[in-house]
Amino acid sequence: MPRFPDQYRFPPHLAHIWLIGCRMEEDPTPVLEKLLHLRSVCFSSGAFVGKRMVYSKGGFPQLCALKMSYKKELEEWRVEEGSMPCLRTLTIDNCKKLKQLPNGLKYITSLKELKIEIMNREWTEKLVTGGEEYYIVQLHSPTHSQCSICQL
C-alpha cells in the first residue's frame, strides 16, 4: 500500500486504528489527523517506510494514545504546536534512525506518560535529566507523569 486512502473511506466515528505491515511510502498523517473521533493510533512493523512525518496544528483533536513502533526508516518527525491537544500516552519503540524527538511535544500539556524503548545510547544521553533534549520530555505535571527510557 504505497498510499493511504483519503479520510472519506473511513467510518466517520472511527476511534482506534492499528496499522501494521502496510509499507506506506507517503506520510499517512494528513489523512489520519482529520479523523475527528480518532482516540488511538498505533504504527507498527513496517506500517510507514518513509523518512519524514508531520503532525499539523489542529490535527488529531481527540487522540489520547499514540504508539510508533519499529519505524526503522523514520528520520524526522515534526509536531506543530496545537497538534494532539488531548494526547496522554506516547510510546516510541525501535525508531533507531529518528534523529530527535519533535520539539512540538513540549506544547502537549496533556501528556502524562512517555515511553521510549529500544533506542540507541545517544538517545538515552540526550533525554536524561540534564541532557540536551530533556526539556522536551520534562512532562508538564511531574507528580502525575511518568517517563521511561529503555535501551538494548
Rank of each mutant, 00 (worst) to 15 (best):
H16I: 04
H16R: 04
H16G: 07
W18A: 12
L19C: 13
I20E: 03
G21A: 05
G21H: 02
G21T: 04
C22L: 15
C22Q: 12
R23I: 08
E26Y: 10
D27V: 08
P28K: 06
P28I: 11
L32V: 10
L32P: 04
L32Y: 02
E33N: 10
E33D: 15
K34W: 01
K34F: 00
L36Y: 11
H37S: 08
R39K: 15
F43G: 04
F43Q: 04
S44L: 05
S45E: 09
S45F: 01
G46N: 08
V49H: 02
G50P: 08
R52Y: 13
M53I: 12
V54M: 00
Y55C: 08
K57E: 12
K57F: 02
G58W: 04
G59E: 11
G59R: 03
P61L: 09
Q62D: 14
Q62P: 13
C64D: 13
L66C: 05
L66E: 04
S69A: 14
S69Q: 09
E75C: 02
E75Q: 05
E75V: 00
E76F: 05
E80M: 10
G82Y: 01
G82F: 02
S83D: 15
M84G: 12
R88Y: 08
T89S: 13
T91R: 02
D93E: 11
N94F: 00
C95N: 07
C95A: 09
K96S: 10
L98V: 10
L98F: 12
L98H: 07
L105H: 03
L105V: 05
K106A: 13
Y107W: 13
T109V: 15
S110N: 15
L111G: 02
L111F: 03
K112W: 02
K112C: 08
K115F: 00
I116R: 00
